[in-house]
Write a protein that binds this DNA or RNA. Structure first.
Lengths: 227, 227
DNA sequence: TTGACTTAGTGTTAATTTAACACTTTATTT
DNA sequence: AAATAAAGTGTTAAATTAACACTAAGTCAA
């Protein structure tokens, strides 16, 4: 714990790994750097923590400033503190990972130098951002199994096929359709809507929404969402 | 990512939640503060991050300085950045959790103002350390289920009863002896030693050691240690 | 030395969960 | 109206988990 305040200090930043899902691939939002070092390289959105804001607030502010995204799912990931991670001086960065729904996601592409990349083909990144990205992806894959994170990547109304496709894209494995549906419907956390999703020359699909309030209630009672 | 370096900076510290197990209760190591603020309150060991060390190094250094502990299991937990968490000025703290084996643990009690407390009866803590402690305990409980962390809290040679007692103490639930033994032996990660643990007027117990190298090998192949 | 005591150690069975698998339904398009 | 394409639906075998009680091996005291 702090006792004296006389050391010179590292700079403190936040960086965000923003994931999106377009129905096919899991994607990450990157920013092209306009300044040295790593000018013109792709990088994670982020920036300095101000003295009057929490770390979460800093992450949300930077995300809004650099990508236009607001109201996204945001969770702290890990803090990266290698001594030479920034070539100029000591910078410690608190990394976040964010999940955005497709509706919000399109807004991000408006941002001048922001672009979505499929996670399987990320360009070379500035600083240690490749390491941060890898950690975020590993975390997302891990958490998806026992936390209903997936819904943060889908529109508010979605079909079971979309949900399954998301799980398959993130986890990188094929899932059995019948077993998948049995399982997720068994939790009783998906509310069927009076609405169908029409999409091409075939049978339309039932739309559902996720019931987050019910999930929170169940979680307090020790319930675990497991895939 | 950093672009300019002109903001005034938060101070950066590390704090460690050090867990130990005495065969009965899960315990935490606390330090009595000698200085204001929170003078004479109990607090987590920790201190400032120097410019020439990583965060992990800072945590190990502070742990050694304040408690005498070295070579402990150490993992980054979460970074705490509430604006008013230190009453004097803005301080952001990277929290770690540490697991120490009983052999090492006794060394810690030599440290002047360090003391072990059962996690069920922690005194009031300085700063936001109660929150950090709660996060660490939740993380330990969560991770114990799917990561072989428990061995970091036991001596290198241990009996299955000791191992089970540890799991029960941390998770707070009773476990079935036969099922527990079947499960952990089934992983084939415990090596029986040519040695028995004698302890009182009853049958002595087989001693085992954990095989970390084998575990790492299996983990790479997607194996999960699950209780 | 023997009997009482205490913890170590051990298997079987029922219940639950998971994994594998194929056809019918409902819309659109031509 | 026929072709197409994804949606939707149950059963069974296999694997895992949960429940449960006695014997074994040592120490200690009478």
């Amino acid at each position: 714990m702090p006792c004296v305040y006389e050391y010179s200090r590292p700079a403190l930043t936040v960086d965000c790994v923003v994931f999106g899902f377009d129905g096919g691939d899991l994607q990450v939002l990157l920013i092209r750097r306009g300044l040295e070092p790593f000018k013109d390289r792709w990088a994670l959105p982020g920036g300095f923590v101000h003295l009057d804001e929490t770390l979460d607030e800093a992450a949300r502010r930077e995300l809004a400033e650099e990508t236009g995204l607001r109201e996204v799912f945001l969770e702290q990931l890990h803090t990266f503190g290698a001594v030479e991670r920034d070539p100029r001086e000591r910078v410690v960065s608190v990394a976040y990972f964010a999940l955005v729904k497709p509706t919000a996601a399109t807004a991000a592409t408006d941002a001048a130098e922001a672009e979505w990349f499929p996670v399987a083909s990320i360009p070379p990144l500035a600083f240690d951002h490749a390491e941060i990205f890898a950690a975020a992806l590993a975390r997302l894959r891990g958490k998806l199994r026992y936390d209903p994170l997936g819904f943060e990547l889908l529109p508010p109304k979605f079909t079971l096929s979309q949900l399954q496709g998301l799980y398959e894209a993130v986890l990188g494995t094929a899932l059995d359709k019948r077993n998948f549906r049995k399982k997720v419907l068994g939790f009783d956390l998906l509310v069927p809507l009076n609405e169908k999703h029409r999409d091409g020359a075939h049978r339309p699909a039932q739309l559902f929404r996720f019931d987050p309030a019910k999930y929170r209630r169940l979680k307090k009672q020790g319930f675990l969402f497991e895939l």
